[in-house]
Computed example of a mutant assay.
Amino acid sequence: MTNRIPDGPVRERLAAVLEALDIPDPATVGDTETHREILAERAMHAAIPLRNVLDHGGHPLGIEWITQYLCERLAENQSTGYRHWGERP
């Protein structure tokens, strides 16, 4: 038995949510506020389509459209502008 979620809309949605929330940790205390602001913005964009699916049974344009919408919002709100762990000087 496998616990792997099969390829398809559900997996795509979960991957998009993970991408929204899994941004690098700030490297210094001075980068914490920027990191927090970026993460809050990305979390809001992830919550909107999830709310549509979970509370309202989906979106009239379908789960593929919602996943694309989320990916576009993430592209507009990059996780840049702060130093993070693993970043090369």
Rank of each mutant, 00 (worst) to 15 (best):
R4P: 00
W65K: 05
V29D: 14
L61I: 00
Q78V: 13
D7V: 09
G8W: 01
E41W: 00
I23H: 04
E37P: 01
A15N: 10
A15C: 08
P49A: 07
H59E: 09
E37D: 14
L70H: 01
L21W: 01
W85S: 11
R88N: 05
D25I: 07
I63Y: 06
R51P: 02
H45V: 04
D25H: 09
R51S: 15
R42N: 05
R11Y: 06
I63G: 12
L18G: 13
A16G: 13
E87R: 05
L50C: 15
C71T: 13
R83K: 10
A20C: 11
E41Y: 00
G30S: 07
V10M: 14
R88M: 05
D22K: 09
T80M: 11
T67P: 08
V53W: 14
A16P: 05
Q68T: 14
R83Y: 00
S79P: 10
G81K: 04
I66E: 15
T32H: 11
L21Y: 03
I48H: 04
H45Q: 11
L74F: 03
R36D: 15
P9N: 11
R73K: 11
D7L: 10
L39I: 08
E19A: 14
N3R: 07
E87L: 09
H35G: 01
E37L: 14
L14P: 03
G62C: 08
M44H: 08
E41Q: 07
Y82W: 04
E87M: 12
T67Y: 11
H56F: 15
A15H: 05
P6E: 12
E87P: 00
G8A: 05
R11Q: 15
P49D: 08
Q68L: 15
Y69V: 04
G62R: 05
W65D: 15
R11C: 11
I48Y: 07
A43Y: 08
A15E: 13
N3V: 11
A20L: 10
A43R: 11
G62K: 03
G30L: 04
E33I: 06
G58T: 03
R83Q: 11
P6A: 14
Q78R: 14
E76N: 06
A43K: 09
H56M: 13
G62L: 06
W85N: 11
P24L: 04
